[in-house]
Design a protein around this nucleic acid. Structure first.
Lengths: 141, 141
DNA sequence: CGTCCAATCTTGGTCGAACCAAGAGTATAT
DNA sequence: ATATACTCTTGGTTCGACCAAGATTGGACG
């Protein structure tokens, strides 16, 4: 691609969108090659950190819509990485729990995705990566 | 939304995607309210900075696909902000030129979008905004 | 108890951005 | 002259994000 107009290059929103598109594409390809989906990692991480939970609550943690959650859980159950069973304490809910295979899967995906971060942030030093992470965290706060 | 899992919060790609989603939503709403599209600004800016040009070349500048370019130009022509005429020097091409109204429109959109940047980066100081812009520019380089 | 409202899951959509492919017309090289 | 390359147009597909309605269950309150 040729150089973009200066007015555009100076807009943070444009830079963020471009960076997001590039990162998203890389992550998507990587996860597809691993037989998964970016959302899988988020869900497994939430279960690992917060314990068994209902579908909506996992969704709220990760910013995933209920209906998309449903699809993703179908896949994760299919792969044996999570178990989904009616919550005996509240039978409206499904209690989603991490299986042993799911915990291993989480670690695998974590190392894979951490590696991808390095590719994305290739041009930055370790300190700069921390700075970027900090700034992004703050604008999301 | 509840707090996201730490493993997720630490991934720059996740932060970038979230920030992009938020920014993109804001921009989209703002441009829709102004009767436009985010791409309109990019196209007008490219014409202003690089002069009349063919559709593919504008697209390469701004990272817009040919077919999307076609749609966007239909809208901009309709609004009277650009003119599209066959290039006499190469009749495969359409020469797209900025009209006087288009130049005014560009300035309007620029001030509007600059204001939106402030909303997006509300939590950051001016120096930090420059830092963020610089880091993002480098990872895109 | 019965009634009404709220929460959850499931299902089946919509919408927009990004991308891809084929065809028609035009230019260029050999 | 012919083959190749370029441009625009048209008509798609894919995917993430989002929305809505129905069925089931829980809880509140008369």
């Amino acid at each position: 691609m040729n150089e973009a107009p200066a007015r555009l290059r100076r807009k943070p929103s444009w830079l963020i969108n471009r960076a997001s598109a590039r990162a998203h594409r890389l992550i998507k390809e990587t996860m597809a090659a691993a037989g998964g989906h970016a959302y899988h990692f988020a869900i497994l991480a939430a279960l690992d950190e917060f314990g068994p939970n209902s579908q909506v609550q996992i969704g709220q943690r990760c910013g995933i819509d209920q209906s998309d959650m449903h699809t993703m859980l179908n896949e994760l159950v299919e792969q044996g990485h999570v178990a989904r069973a009616p919550d005996p304490a509240d039978r409206r809910r499904n209690l989603v729990t991490l299986t042993a295979a799911g915990r291993r899967r989480l670690e695998d995906l974590d190392t894979t995705l951490t590696r991808v971060q390095h590719d994305i942030l290739d041009a930055l030093s370790a300190t700069e990566r921390d700075t970027l992470t900090g700034l992004l965290t703050r604008i999301l706060g």
